[in-house]
């Protein structure tokens, strides 16, 4: 996030600052990894524990998948950093076209 403007004019200070910043970011990555594992566990548990209806489980695990992918994209793939405007546009255009395709294919089998 704050990794782009790091020039104080003193290279030593910059390095110290940058190292600290990236160590801090690495800690955030570990936290988001723990959350991703947690979401996966809930999704598997929801299916393993028989008793919930499919009408609840399917939207629920899809939501968990979307949340987990947001973590992956914004933290692991650094989309939360500056300078990711074009990547966001590329990815979301892909998501839009993909969503229309999935919508078309799944409605075609309903009627």
């Amino acid at each position: 996030m704050a990794n782009s403007q790091l020039n104080s004019g003193n290279p030593r200070v910059d390095i110290e600052y940058r190292r600290k910043k990236s160590a801090e970011e690495m800690r955030h990555h570990v936290v988001s990894f723990a959350l991703m594992i947690f979401l996966t566990l809930i999704a598997f548990a929801a299916v393993a524990i028989k008793g919930f209806s499919a009408w609840f489980i399917v939207p629920f695990i899809l939501l968990l998948a979307v949340v987990q992918v947001i973590f992956q994209l914004y933290y692991f793939m650094h989309m939360s950093h500056k300078g990711h405007e074009a990547p966001s546009m590329f990815l979301y255009s892909g998501v839009l076209v993909g969503a229309v395709t999935i919508l078309a294919f799944s409605t075609i089998i309903w009627w």
Partner: peptide, 25 residues
């Protein structure tokens, strides 16, 4: 390279979405 690769990933999203759509149908 950075920009081009993200463009490729946008395309990959469409590719996998159509495979998912086919599978669901």
């Amino acid at each position: 390279k950075f920009l081009g690769f993200w463009f490729f990933l946008g395309g990959e999203t469409v590719l996998f979405a159509s495979l998912f759509a086919t599978y669901l149908a």
